[in-house]
Structure formats: C-alpha cells, structure tokens
Amino acid sequence: MMKPGTLILYAAARFLMPLQLMFSVFLLLRGHDEPGGGFIAGLVAAGAFSLYLFAFGSELTRDLMRIDPRTLIGWGLLFGVISAFPALLQGQPFLTAQWWPIPLPGGVEFKLSTPLIFDIGVYLAVIGTVMTFVVALAESEQV
C-alpha cells in the first residue's frame, strides 16, 4: 500500500511541501496575535512531511528532515522547559513570561519572549510526535 506515489503526487509534494513549511512558520510566529500558534503550525508542518512521505517514502523523508522525529520531540520539550527558567533568574514564579523586544528595520518590532520560545517548543514537539507516529507506521509496513 505504501508504494511511492504517482506523478501528480510527486509534483504536488515537491511544490507544496516547502510552501506548507513556510506557512507553518508564519502561523507559528503570528500565533500570538492572530489565529495560529504552535499546535496549529506543528500540525501543518507534520502534514507537509506526511505528504512528502506518501510521495517519496520514509527513507527520503528521514533524509529530508535530517533530524530523527524522536529527537525533535526531545528538542521541543527542552525548549518548553528552558522557557520556564528565565523567570526564576528574575526571582519571579516559574514560567512567568519575560519579554525582550528587538527592533527590526522598517519600524517593526520582533517580540522575542519566553512565550515565543515556549510556542516553538510546542511546535517542535507536535511535529516530532506526529512524525514519529507516521514514520514508525510507514516503516512497520515496509518490512
């Protein structure tokens, strides 16, 4: 069942995947103000990788991702936990948000903050989790 896909799937995956990934990062970054956020962005990215997997198989997907999905989960959790600590250094309760706005050219301000780091953690953990499911399932079938 999991044979590499058809031509249309190839083409679609090749073009759609980068777009989907970019869109997911966009969703992640704007999530604090507009609909979006780590969970949604993570699901979009995982969807992108899954599409690629259906088209090209799990080996190539692993190569593309470079990092093992399980390692990605680890990174996600690590980000989540790290974001909790700056507050402790300030003597505030665990997980209290800290903000370090960085002005960017063009009058825009990039709001670097612990909630953002936390959201990135969620993003990575969601991608890692879903891809662990999908890759493991796909590979268990290929044996």
Partner: peptide, 13 residues
Amino acid sequence: ILTAIVIAFGVLA
C-alpha cells in the same frame, strides 16, 4: 479544547 484535540489525536494513534 485546542490541546484536547491534539492530545486526543495522540491517544488515538
């Protein structure tokens, strides 16, 4: 609910 949806997916898997 947002987290519940994602977790339900994990549990389902």
